[in-house]
Structures are given as C-alpha cells and as structure tokens.
Design a protein around this nucleic acid. Structure first.
Length: 610
DNA sequence: GCAACGCGAC
C-alpha cells in the first residue's frame, strides 16, 4: 500500500524530473522510497519563489536602519573605539546596540571586553547593558559571574527587569542548576512588580526539555493555558522539537495540530523540527507531506530544512543525491552553511570515500572562517573508521594550530579509533591529553574505553575503570552494562555476565535489543543454546522485539553446536518475521550443505527458507 | 531605541 502511494507521488512529480536535472540521479527508481521523496521535493522547489526576488522586496519594504549592521567583531571594535572617543559620548543605547550585535554573533568574550572598555571610559551601563553582559556569561557557562553582575545593578542603583531575570534563569538552566532557576522564578511570582512573562515560561519549558523531561514541559504548557500568560509559538516549538528529538513524532504531530487549532500558526522552525523527526524515523511519506504542506502555507524551506534533507540522504547512503540538493541550494541562493557541508562530508565518510570527503573539507577551508570543531571531528571520525589513524592525528594537531579546541567528541572519536587498531597506548595517551586540556570525559568516553579494553582482552582494567566511573558518579547506562556483559562473555565468564544482565532491572535499567543479542551470543558461545532460546522468548514477552541480528546470532549458535534441525526451524521463523540470513550465517549454511551434513529431509526446508 | 526562550552536522 505504502509503496503504491509512493509510486503515485513519483509519477505525479516526474515531469519535474525532465525539466529539472537532478545531477547524477536517474529519474525513477522504483525500489527506493528516498528517491520518490526526493522527486516530490522537486515539486515544491518549483512553487517556491527564489530568494533573489524575495530579498529585493524586503529591501524596498524595510525602513533604513539607523545603526550600521555589525557583521564582524573587528568592525565592532573599530566602531566602539570611535564611539568612546566622541565628546560628548553617544547614548548608552548606541553602545548596547553594538554589544547586542556582537552577542548575536556569539562572540561573548568580545562583548565582555567591550563592556570593560566602556567602564574604563566612564560610560555608565544601563539595565540592558548589564543584561547583555549576564547573557554573555551564561553562554560562556560562567553563570557565577552573572551573579556578580547582579551585584553591580545594586551598586549603580539600577533595578533588574524581567529581561534580566529571564536571562539569569536561562543561565542557571544551561548549567543544570534547576533549583536556582526555579528560585528566581518563585521570587518573581512572589515579588509582584516583575511578573514572569511568556519568555520566562518558555525558558523553563526549554529547561525541562533539555533534561529530557517532556512531561514536565507539557505540564507547564497546560498551566500556561489555564493562566493569563498564554503559550506562544516558541513554547510550542520548543516542546515539538524536544518530542521529535526523542522520536516521539506522533506526540509532536498531535501537539502541532493542537497548536494550530488554538489559532497559532507554525513557522519554518516548527516544520524543520517535524521534518527532522520524521526523517530520522525514515518516514519519507510524512516528510514529503510536511514539505508540501509548508509550501502551500507559504512557509519556505531554509538552510536548516535543506540541511536536514542533506543529512538524511547522506545517512541513507544517497550521497550523490545529497550533493544534488547542495547544488540546488546554491542555484537558489540559499547558501549552504558549515552544517550543510559537514553533513555532506560525513556522507562521503560513511561511504568510505575519503578523498571526496577531503574535497568537501577543502571547500569548507576555502570559504574562510567557516570551519569549526564539528567539521574537523567529522573528518577525523571518517579517517578513524577507515583505520587511517595517521591522517586523523594530523587533523587533530592541525585543529590546534587553527585555534580550534578539540572537544570531548573529537577525543572520543580518536580514542575509539586507537582501540579499533589495537593501539592501546595511544588511546591511553589521548585520554590523558583530553583531560589535561580540560575536556571532561562523558558516559560515551567511558563506553569507548570499556569497549576498547574488553575487546582487547583487558577485562580487569575495564572493571577497574568501571569502578572509577562509579566513583565519579557518572551514571552507567544500559550501553555501559551491555559492554561489560559482552566483556565478561568474551572472557568466558558467562555466569558473571548472566548475573550482571539479571541485575539490570534492580538498577532501574531495561536491557535493549543489543543487550539481549550480546547475552544470547555469549550463551551460544558457551554452548548454552537452550538458554539462549529462552532469552529470545523472554525478550519478546517483555516487549523488546528481536531483530535480524538476534536471529542470526542464535541460528549461528545452533549450527556451531551441531543442532542443525533447530537452526533450520529458527531460519523459518526468522523468514516469517521479515528478516534474512546475513553473510556469515549464509556461509555456515553453505558450508553445511557442501559437507553433506544436512539431513536430506531438511533440504526442501532450507531451500524454501533462503 | 538596546537585552531574554525555539530548528540542522561529529
């Protein structure tokens, strides 16, 4: 049914294929839903006015700004310096405008330094000045300094306003200091003269979402609906985005309809969040519907929307098509940004096409100051996955020479790469370097270290590290335990592995399909195939659906343990569930057949199954 | 007039 619908969409939009060349891509691929999705996506491109026309219109309609737009920090410093020398000096509002623009450029440290220049020249700050300053400290994750700015308010007899408090609440929430944030909120309510507004609520909603607490965010939304401060588009967008990130796309779509029924119209951000959600789930039909819907509402896809498309196509292995989207963006004057190019580069990396990835990277470098930590980390990851550790390490050193600070993700990638090529000493060195550079190891770092140690048969070191992790109060998740269970299985300690597995629920953790697969594999290697089969039943009962890997693992287990007929029965079940034998299972079966080890009565069954 | 909350990449 779904396929027929897809094909219909493709047919209805195929005319665009002939009029518009999708570089490197055949027009109709009957078996690829992504292509259909991409074809349909042509349709709205044609109905979309080009950006060039739009920008002419805005130029005519927009009144001339009375302050020059600052586009670089260098400009800001020059303008600021000139202003400081004027006698009498310009109003504080003029200074605030510059500070605000530099803050928008995310050069928070520059704002602080400009503010200090103001002070040195005897310019008195206003409420707005100090609020901008607080916001900068918050974005630099130094909310502590914000509190001293708050002290400054009282020193110069200024009263913080709702902007100031909202900024502070945001700062505390960014640093996970929920108690302090809600403390400010409660004081605002109790204080009387500075009541929370829709931004205050929006900030709190964002805080809940950041902690993964969608239900608390929705509860606050319901409270707003009952009160005088009604939720606005931003509040809805925040929750919709969070639900999408947690793959709760249906809930997000319900909230989306609810929002519209209340008369709040979505914008491009709403659609981008939803698009991202449905794309991550591979729901192309829904993605196509959303794209068409947004265009009919005169909401035009922007660089974010296109980047989501590029990323999705790349993750699906359709990097040529992704490249086509990038070319189309350029033709339509929607300038691809660092995220777009990094996604494309990652696409080539995923295909193992490192020289083409390198070409995208060269393009990024040629664009000037575009390159960032993520783009370096992405290329480093590409080399690490290809076991090209020399190239990866060269890039790490190159980053530092460009003034970019490698972060936890960069180091995690490299540490993992070292383990995968068996360079345990290098992995250790990088782990130390990372901490020496002030990059804190996270749960993922420990997962990489534990996995690397276990796979390189250093179980006791891994267990020692796990204890260190517990001491640091880093909450071990199911991924960490799965790695340890696998480590124990590799070391032949099946009893300990089973104990750890069974103890998961008492830690408030549920095994996932990967945990089950690891346990099943361990049991099969230990020759305990019947118990492995019991785990297969158990996972189904507990609502954790086995995947292709589960079946392949246990089937291989049966074959290795010379239980051919049980293997064949399970192959049948696997086939019924829509999974198939992978390469290594197939090899075993072919081997069996060639050795004439199969009961002739089973032959038709095998032939029917494969 | 200037400031606060919302979207994409490793």
């Amino acid at each position: 049914m779904l396929k027929i619908m897809m094909r219909n969409i493709a047919a209805s939009s195929s005319s665009y294929c002939t009029s518009w060349r999708w570089r490197g891509m055949p027009c109709l691929h009957s078996n690829s839903t992504v292509v259909v999705f991409a074809n349909d996506y042509f349709a709205f491109l044609h109905s979309q006015p080009s950006k060039r026309i739009k920008s002419t219109r805005t130029q005519l309609e927009q009144p001339v700004r009375n302050s020059p737009k600052i586009t670089t920090v260098e400009d800001a410093f020059i303008v600021f310096d000139r202003m400081l020398q004027m006698r009498p000096p310009p109003s504080v509002v003029r200074f605030n405008q510059i500070l605000g623009q530099v803050a928008k450029l995310k050069h928070y440290s520059a704002v602080i330094s400009l503010y200090n220049q103001m002070g040195a020249s005897g310019i008195r700050p206003g409420v707005c000045t100090l609020t901008i300053l607080i916001n900068c400290y918050c974005h630099l994750n130094q909310v502590g300094f914000s509190l001293s700015v708050l002290g400054k308010f009282f020193k110069v007899c200024l009263e913080p306003d709702v902007f100031t408090f909202n900024t502070l609440i945001n700062g505390f929430l960014r640093e996970n200091r929920v108690a302090e944030a809600s403390g400010i909120f409660n004081k605002m309510i109790a204080g009387g003269n500075c009541q929370p507004n829709v931004v205050t609520y929006g900030t709190l909603v964002k805080g809940f979402c950041m902690k993964g607490n969608n239900s608390a965010a929705i509860q606050l939304l319901r409270k707003m609906e009952e009160g005088v401060c009604k939720p606005d588009l931003v509040v809805y967008n925040t929750i919709i985005d969070s639900l999408c990130k947690d793959t709760l796309v249906d809930d997000a779509l319900n909230l989306f309809s609810e929002m519209m029924s209340k008369g709040i119209s979505p914008n491009v951000i709403t659609y981008n969040s939803l698009m991202n959600g449905v794309c991550k789930l591979g729901e192309w039909k829904e993605a196509t519907r959303l794209l068409n819907e947004m265009v009919t509402k005169n909401i035009f896809p922007d660089v974010f929307t296109f980047s989501v498309l590029v990323d999705t196509l790349c993750k699906e292995g359709m990097v040529v098509e992704a490249e086509g989207v990038v070319e189309m963006m350029i033709e339509r004057d929607i300038e691809p940004d660092i995220v777009t190019y990094t996604s494309l580069m990652d696409g080539f990396c995923l295909q193992g096409e490192m020289s083409r990835a390198r070409n995208v990277f060269k393009l990024i470098l040629s664009k000037g100051s575009m390159v960032n930590v993520v783009s370096y980390s992405t290329l480093i990851n590409g080399y690490c996955k290809r076991k090209m550790m020399d190239e990866a390490m060269t890039l790490l050193r190159e980053m530092s020479s460009k003034g970019l600070v490698p972060n936890t993700v960069t180091y995690n990638t490299l540490v993992d790469g070292c383990f995968k090529v068996g360079k345990l000493g290098d992995a250790q060195k990088l782990f130390s370097e990372m901490q020496a550079c002030g990059q804190l190891p996270n749960v993922q770092t420990y997962a990489i270290l534990l996995d690397g140690l276990c796979k390189n048969r250093k179980l006791s070191t891994a267990i020692q590290l796990f204890k260190e992790m517990e001491a640091k109060k880093l909450d071990a998740d199911v991924v960490i335990y799965s790695i340890l269970i696998e480590g124990l299985c590799i070391a032949g300690k099946i009893e300990s592995a089973r104990d750890l597995f069974c103890g998961l629920s008492s830690k408030g953790l549920e095994p996932n399909v990967r945990t089950y697969n690891i346990m099943i594999n361990g049991l099969c290697i230990a020759g305990l195939t019947s118990e492995a089969e019991k785990f297969l039943t158990q996972m189904e009962v507990k609502g954790c659906s086995p995947n292709g890997c589960t079946y392949n693992t246990i089937i291989r287990g049966f074959i290795h343990n010379k239980q051919t007929s049980r293997a064949m029965v399970l192959i049948q079940t696997m086939k019924e569930k829509g999974f198939s034998a992978d390469a290594s299972t197939m090899e075993l079966i072919v081997n069996l057949l060639s050795k004439d080890e199969v009961d002739p009565a089973l032959l038709p069954l095998i032939k029917g199954s494969l």
